[in-house]
Structure formats: C-alpha cells, structure tokens
Design a protein around this nucleic acid. Structure first.
Lengths: 216, 216
DNA sequence: TAGATTGTTAATCGATTAACAATC
DNA sequence: TAGATTGTTAATCGATTAACAATC
C-alpha cells in the first residue's frame, strides 16, 4: 500500500520537540520584557546551543524568520505554540490524589500553557465525590464516562506501582491517547498511545554515577 | 600541561549511564526470580535494544561476560551497582517539604538503591524542629552544618521557583555536589556541581505536540 | 546600498548496529 | 568438540555544526 503523501513527515527528532518547548518559554519571557525581535544566535546563546541548530529546529516546520532581522518574538511564539498544540486547552485527567497527585495538582506551570486538570481520579472513599478547587474527584469505575464527556486525551498517572497497569488499561479503553507516568513501573499500552515515563530513580542514579566516579 | 593518564576517560555517553541504571533494575528482578545467567540478547529484548548496544555499554567499564554463556546475573548486578555508585549509602537532603517534598519523601524506590533522606530542609515555623520518620526538619539557616556533619553531597530541590536559586546557593556553599531540581526555573551552579532538572512542562508539551500532530 | 541574518547544503561528529574472530 | 555468546572493529545511521548563497 502506498504511503500517504508525506508532505509533513521528515521525522522530527524528539530532541527538536523538547527544544521547541524551551524556545517557547523563552519567547514568552522576551515578549513580557517587551523585546520585539531575536536572532537565532541570541536565542542559542541563552541555552548554550548552536545557532544553526535553532534554525534547523524551526526549519522542520516552516520559514518563520526575516533575513537580516531575525524572528519576530510574538509571531514566532504563536507559531511554536501552534506547532506544540499549545494554542488550545487540553483537559487532563489527574489519576491518583495522594501526596504526589496533590503536588502535581498545585504545580504552577501546567496551567500556564493550556493544560487544565479537568477531573481527578481516586478510589479513596473519603475523597470520591468531593471537589478540589471546583475539580471533581471521581472513582476509577466512573472514569470512562468522564473521559468521554470531557473529551480528555491526556492523563497524568500518580498512583502506586501496583495499581498503575490496571488503571492504565481502563484509561486507554476510555480513549486516553497520552500518558505521563510517575509510577515506578513499566506500563504496557497500545502502539497508538503515547507514554512518557518520569523515572526519578534513573535521575538520581545518574547523579550518583558522576559522584562515585569523581571519588575515583 | 599534560593530561592525567586517561585510562578511564573515553567519555561515557549519558544515555549509556541511563541504560546501566535500567539494566541494574532488571538484574535485581532476575536475581529475585532465581535466574542465574543472561545473554546480551535476552537483556536487550526486554527493552527493545540491540544486543551489541548492551555489550558496548558494558565494555566501557570492563569485561563482565563469559563467551558462550552470557553474564552471571548477580555478578553483573554487583558490578553495575559499583559503577553507578549504588554499593554505598548516599545521604540526601530533601529541600522543601510541601506537597511535592512530602510526596518525594514517601516515594518508594529511592531507598531501595541506597539513597536515604538524611535531613529535610524547610523554613515553615510549624515544621522546623519536628521529625518525620526520625528524619529531622531543619531551617535553611542551619543547613550548612547538617550538610557538613552528615557529609551530604546530593540534594533534591522541591521548593517554589522563587526561592530555588537562593537556597541552591546556600546548598552549594555548604558542599552539595549534585542537585535534582523540580522547581520550574533555570538554576545557576558552579561547573563542578552536577545539576539535573526534572521539567514537567516539557514532558507534557511533548505529549501535546504528538496529539496535535495526529489531529493533522 | 552595506550589513545582518536567514534557510539550507555539505562536513563533521558521535552513537547505534552489523559482523565476526576469539573463546568459553 | 560443536554451539553459543562475548568483546571489538568496521559500517551505518542520525544529529549537530560550519559554511555560504539568498535576501531582508
């Protein structure tokens, strides 16, 4: 079978996406500071990157600059927000409302870029049915309905490792398309579901490697 | 000036270190399951890696396998723990004891690999002086003494963005050599201090990029 | 126009993978 | 020994960087 006309498929490197996210935050700050234009060199210098890399990252998506000038801050910001999907609201399900879930709920910075926790999922009888800042807490057995009505595609998983796979299966069945997982366990999801693990142990162990090495 | 005899400096890729951490956890599990040996192919298959990559990752540090057999699980586990610095206890300072700090304190999995929270730092008058599971909570102004007496080299930063740089400066002055930062801000540290940022916004924005793209 | 900076091609660098002699 | 699997070299792949014509 023939592939779709691949006019947008030159396979974007993951690191490019991550840098676009960094550029976007920088542009938001520049705009606040009243700066109108910025060159790829200026932008690169702020993050110890190469200016060619900045231009190449952007070139995957179009031509946004003006030769001799650079990039218009607010224009580029808007383009990157569109590319990253930050030009709309993303309702998010927060699954697990223990210490970590609560911390993530109050984490400032999610909201700023259009992510809005629309429902909290927790099976604790003392929590189900309550609201937190107008966000309802529902039990796992009711999650499918909530996800469908609210058209939620993103879930943040902050439950213990033991229950992570079971609740993931239900989330996926209900239509969740992307998962940010904090449970220290390897989840299995269908190929069309995007899974990103935040693995705190790896981060710490990387640090201790360098410390141990410098001890000789 | 001549370099030191570089008999251990072929510059290890960061991704290699991260994979060693993954291998180690797998080996712990295999040992629990009573499995005695494993080949690079077996190990690679569990993580969709290439067997040559597994062997190359290990080859940076020595020859740990037996031709025709593979690797002895408990032997390799011990070697990797030594390489990653997991064959000793690392006292850790947990800085900030709000929702996130509390969640990290109770996070299982740190302790398993030798990281032990030895002191909690928080300036809330209601918290200072108390203990949590025998771990003392101290104020920032007393942190230097604690870090020196307990020989703490690693800090986990779970404070608001506004106070992150100030407390970091004090931690570094007191001798902290590695920082795992959860505050959504760019910290400046001396070159010899290892800094790893956990950036939750980037993770979410990467997810929304792929969702937005698949919407066309 | 002259100076600046883009978008893009070609060169470089580094990491992954294939292949295979060594050897248990 | 024959079969299996390592450690390592060479080939491949992909990402970063340098260089520069195009052009504002």
């Amino acid at each position: 079978m023939a592939h779709r006309p691949s006019h947008r498929l030159p396979k974007i490197p993951e690191m490019t996406i991550r840098r676009l996210s960094v550029y976007t935050r920088c542009l938001l700050q520049l705009e606040e500071d009243g700066i109108k234009t910025i060159s790829s060199q200026d932008l690169a210098d702020r993050f110890n990157l190469n200016s060619a890399q900045v231009r190449k990252d952007l070139a995957y998506f179009g031509e946004f600059g003006v030769r001799g000038i650079g990039y218009y801050v607010s224009g580029l910001k808007a383009e990157l927000q569109r590319i990253l999907g930050l030009d709309r609201e993303w309702p998010v399900a927060l699954v697990g409302f223990g210490n970590l879930g609560s911390a993530l709920f109050h984490y400032r910075g999610f909201g700023r870029q259009g992510f809005r926790i629309a429902v909290i999922v927790d099976d604790d009888a003392g929590k189900v049915g309550r609201d937190v800042d107008r966000v309802p807490i529902v039990a796992t057995r009711d999650v499918a309905g909530e996800i469908r009505t609210r058209e939620i595609q993103i879930a943040i998983l902050a439950v213990p490792a033991e229950s992570a796979q079971a609740v993931t299966d239900q989330l996926v069945a209900a239509g969740i398309k992307a998962l940010l997982n904090f449970a220290p366990t390897r989840l299995r999801v269908p190929k069309d579901v995007r899974l990103k693990n935040v693995d705190l142990s790896i981060e710490l162990e990387t640090l201790s490697f360098y410390l141990a090495k410098s001890l000789k």
